[in-house]
């Protein structure tokens, strides 16, 4: 792997990759195009600072990732998250779990069903599967999305994420829990039983 930059080849080599990543994370074409353009321009201006510690691809993806985090922070998506989570707790609970004496069991309609993830037909290798993933991210309440992406796509840890978005650890766990349950049921509905 050569660790020097080749800006002349960037759009050809990484344009569609960064655009697909940006669309997965934002679900918005114009925004994703702007983010990719910003990423290439920032990278070009910062090219002297590239130390070659990572590949060109990883370096560009990190710049894009930071642009997306900045975008969510600028929009203040996680403002009043605590209130939002408290206000929506009941409707969240009843859409997945039973209430009353035996509270907290899966509701019959939302209990996980068997998935066929057999090797021959492994969805992880299918483009269509990523379109469904993108759809399910878009369907998530916007306040859950930045944390979900930071944790599961960018592989950041809880401390980093709480600092990045200025949320408490207990809100972090509520968000991770809800987002995972929503993603699971969205995939079940739109991929595994489609």
């Amino acid at each position: 792997m050569s660790n020097t930059l080749q800006p002349a080849d960037w759009i050809g080599l990484y344009g569609d990759y960064l655009y697909s990543l940006a669309l997965l994370k934002t679900g918005n074409k114009e925004l994703a195009e702007d983010l990719v353009q910003d990423t290439f321009l920032s990278a070009f201006k910062a090219r002297e600072g590239f130390k070659g510690n990572s590949s060109e691809k990883t370096w560009l993806a990190t710049i894009l990732k930071n642009k997306i985090v900045d975008h969510y922070r600028k929009k203040d998506v996680l403002k009043n998250t605590g209130d939002y989570l408290a206000d929506t707790e009941e409707s969240f609970h009843t859409s997945f779990f039973t209430t009353g004496d035996q509270a907290g069991h899966w509701s019959p309609a939302t209990a996980p069903k068997e998935w066929d993830t057999g090797n021959a037909d492994n969805p992880v290798n299918k483009r269509e599967f990523y379109q469904i993933l993108q759809y399910c991210i878009q369907k998530m309440p916007p306040k859950l999305v930045p944390v979900f992406l930071a944790r599961f796509v960018d592989q950041e840890n809880a401390d980093e994420i709480c600092k990045e978005f200025n949320i408490s650890s207990s809100n972090y766990w509520v968000i991770i829990h809800r987002a995972k349950l929503l993603m699971r049921s969205c995939l079940e509905k739109n991929w595994f039983s489609a």
Binding site: S20, R127, Q134
Partner: peptide, 10 residues
């Protein structure tokens, strides 16, 4: 995956 087979094209 998105690097090897991008889902969308500019």
């Amino acid at each position: 995956m998105l690097h090897d087979q991008p889902v969308h094209s500019l």
